[in-house]
Amino acid sequence: MTKCEQKKKLTLKENFKKNFQDILFCVIILLYPTIQFIIFYLGVNVNTIALSFKFFDYEGGYSFAGLENFKLAFYNLFNDTGLKLAVGNSVTYRIIAIAVGMTLSLMFSYYIYLNRAMAGFFKAILFMPAVVSTLVFTIIFRKFVGDLYSEIASKITGEMVPGLLATESTKKATVFFYNVFFGFGTAVLLYSGAMSGTNESVMEYAEVDGTNYWQKFIYVLFPMIFPTFITFMVMHISDTFMNQMNLLGFFADSASPKLQTIGYFLYTKTLKASLSEYPLLATYGLIFTLITMPIVFLVKHLLEKFGPNAY
């Protein structure tokens, strides 16, 4: 062995000894979460993923299906109008949630950060839907736009007016409205918290330089909280094909395909599915995961690379 190799070998040993404490610490901390994940996630779900590659038949049980489920899933995705609509709705809703919901969350958080008129009150009220059970708010909202709206509109027009969730021209907008305008809670809380954690003197300098509120937000504050924004984008995009838009609460299992999202579609199908139908549903799940994952990482990468840098 050369002197170089001897030196290297000693360094590795020393390195291991040096890092032993850290390694031991990591193992201890991660032991429970890892075992928990293996048992309650992998153990439960690896079978679900494996279902994508199986057929189930009541005489023979499970058999290997190769990629047949994927062929059928892709066929349906390209030919079934309802499924195409569900994909479209999932993406549309996500875009609206980001474009409108996230934008408004940021703006409202900015207002609260600036501590303008009634900021404390607005902060409290916007967070309320996050505090109250979804079931509660869904029941109340449904009755509000159903019974109450119908009665008021019928009295005003003199004709029988169905509820907003029963009218073709207003259903979708009503559902989108609910999901956007009742979903600020946690985002406003976390954004306003992130804004409060920024360096106030930077904002003061901007003020002295004569920038207006909009400029302060775009050029000063937003770059400082941009990492938070990235976190939310990752969460939002990951949820694209899992979000059910509270359709279950509004329509039980009868939401029109014009409203359905993939998350709702999969959930309601699973509720009624027999064993033989699970493999195809599992396949859809896997396909959408494979679509979402690279998009998430790509968006994260692009935002990190091209986003504003406060520092």
């Binding site: 439960v44 079978n47 990752v234 990951s238 998350g263 549903l281 995961t289």
Partner: peptide, 16 residues
Amino acid sequence: VVVCLSIPIIGGTASQ
């Protein structure tokens, strides 16, 4: 974490 955020799980209740 990121992967699991985007996987819709089908029929996991019985296994759980």
